[in-house]
Design a protein around this nucleic acid. Sequence first.
DNA 1: GGGTCAATAT
DNA 2: CATATTGACC
Length: 320
Amino acid sequence: MREEDSNWFSRWEEELPSPEELMPLSQTLITPDLALAFDIRNPNHNPTANNTPTQQQAPPLPQTQPQPQPPPSNPLPSSATTPPHPSSAEFAADSVELGSGAAGEEPARTLKRPRLVWTPQLHKRFVDAVAHLGIKNAVPKTIMQLMSVDGLTRENVASHLQKYRLYLKRMQGLSSGSGGGGGGGGAGGLAATADPATDHLFASSPVPPHFLHPGRPNSDHFLPFVPVAALQHHPQQQIAAVAAMAAHPQLQPQYHRQVGHFGSPPNGQFEHPFLSRPSQSVHRMGAPVHNPVPGYVEDLESANGTGGRRVLTLFPTGED
DNA sequence: GGGTCAATAT
DNA sequence: CATATTGACC
């Protein structure tokens, strides 16, 4: 148990994908042209006049619908008292800026961030980051920086952190000892209590023991180790995601070992995880080859698992 | 400004 | 349904 403490830390390095490895995937997966081609744009919501300084070229701007204003699609039958929430269907009222600025702007340029899918791997990075920051330093911004997953926003992390904290709390209450270790077991056996809905994601990554024990001065002093990841601060305009896991729902919960498994050989000499990273070639479409075990295959076509929603899953880096 | 929580939207 | 988004408070 205590041994694992020092142990899991060593493993962390090995598991960490190098920035180089991330980059190829994180580069511009969705070019403006692609975005246009795929009709990726903001259908009904134009939150802010999002200027992307990174994009120097102006899109062809074929025929942009002026779209005067989207009607309040949701009448909200039960709410007699009009909620002061001007949530999504608003901005028509006082959108001075939006009216003048955004209306003229092409919606296509305003790329809406696709829904982030928290894959176990991504979550693992998240947990690792939190673990090494310590609970107290584990705030969205820092976590986000440590993860250095481009495309990840503070909001993404904050939202996920919220859920994660709830999960931890629940685990603390219901698990004694074996619960934390259960992280090792991982997806296999999870606590019978608590909703499977939220759990199965979190259960897939090993939760560092200290997370479950709030009052534990002992495990506080970890290393000031700063992963290289923290250095790169990239324009977070493009999602690092490879396309969706639209893989058949049947094998969705199946997380098989990744092909690009770069775990250092327990044999002794591990290559530097940060060096000699063979670029993970992401074969985009093309060959209709059936992957025997398509853990995370990029599948743009069927990416729409949620109807019209575009779902992107972040890089499948790291494996256990 | 940034974090957390809660509610709500999609 | 999971996640994003938003608002409110600290």
